[in-house]
Amino acid sequence: MAQHERTREPVNPADEARPDDATRRRPRRPETDQLMAEADALIDRVLSGDSEAFNAAVRQKGGQ
């Protein structure tokens, strides 16, 4: 379940959310071998599946 811990003393998320040069995480370059291997594995899995059936299943009712 998406349980929420109601008894926890709330912290101030804003205190932790303030970005500054010290905390702002810069991205690593995406050309790392590990990233590309994972990306290619995901892509290959999609390319080997039944994309037409997946795309048809996505059908939604029009919303706002």
Partner: peptide, 14 residues
């Protein structure tokens, strides 16, 4: 999420 997991997406919040 694969890109984010690998640190390839810039984060502005922790």
């Amino acid at each position: 999420w694969a890109w984010e997991r690998q640190g390839a997406v810039e984060q502005v919040v922790t």
